[in-house]
Amino acid sequence: MKQLFILLGIFAALAVVPFFVSSEFWLNAVLLTLYAALLGQSWNILGGYGGQFSFGHSLFFGVGAYSVAVFQVQLGVNPWIGLLLGGLFGSVIAVGIGFLTFRYGLRGSYFALVTLAFAEVFRIVSNSLWWTGAGEGILIELDQRAVMMQFKSLSHYYWLLWAITLVCFLTVWSLGRSRFGARLMAVRDNEDAAGAIGVDAFTVKLKAMALSGLFTGLAGVFYAQKFLYLDPGIAFGPAVSVESLLVPIVGGLGTLFGPLLGAAALHIVGEVAREMIGDAPGLNMVVFGTILVLMVMFLPRGIGGLGKMSVRNIFKGGK
């Protein structure tokens, strides 16, 4: 219960941010942080709570993003319906891939590589289909009306994202107090032991895939509507996959607030790095890559785990 109050408190505070922050720059900074938290939390459902590390989350992101864009541009489907479709397709693709990989018992690194390979397949295919705009990408026509899920004011985009992210976080909160969540974490910690006491690991993992794919797909829809442009590299390239996994790893895997913490920390570090070393291409990725290496080496439980760790444990973690 305490967790829920803290969560709602944070989101209440986030909801009113646009009233207090007048500069576009800062509002955008908070928006991007929230967006990273959404991506990270979606990954966290599967990776943090379920122990299945995906290297190809851009697949679900891209499917969501292309769903809203293609249906809108090619068939004139309203983007609000596209939002539902994006979430649905993200989820369906995730379940499909989960079905294939988990059915054949792929775990650990193999799972990571298969998800990555699927993302690559989608990237290559979308590169050569006319209806996805192929290599040139796809442009959503500018039409700043709320019915078209396009807004004149940044704060309206912000609230849309806020709402999606809130639903995602509430879902994860409920994992901590539901049978499904208990089973998911049991599978993560020991699949055999879980099976012995009646946990159907296959189904549990598929459900986690479905949720993870759903919210990642929604993040993709948001991206498409916010930037109104997609190409195969943006949608299915490795950048989104890396961001998705980096955020919870930095903040704390398998924790409710980890992705929020990780997103904020990464954003701050990214900005500071930019101030210090300038806006050269690739440098912020150097920083993020370094953070990933150091986190896994020295703080496998993320900065969220710092509070619970004694100095001794930190050293143990570093060994």
Partner: peptide
């Protein structure tokens, strides 16, 4: 049960 215990650590 498992001879080699398998707790959810």
């Amino acid at each position: 049960t498992f001879q080699i215990v398998q707790p959810f650590a």
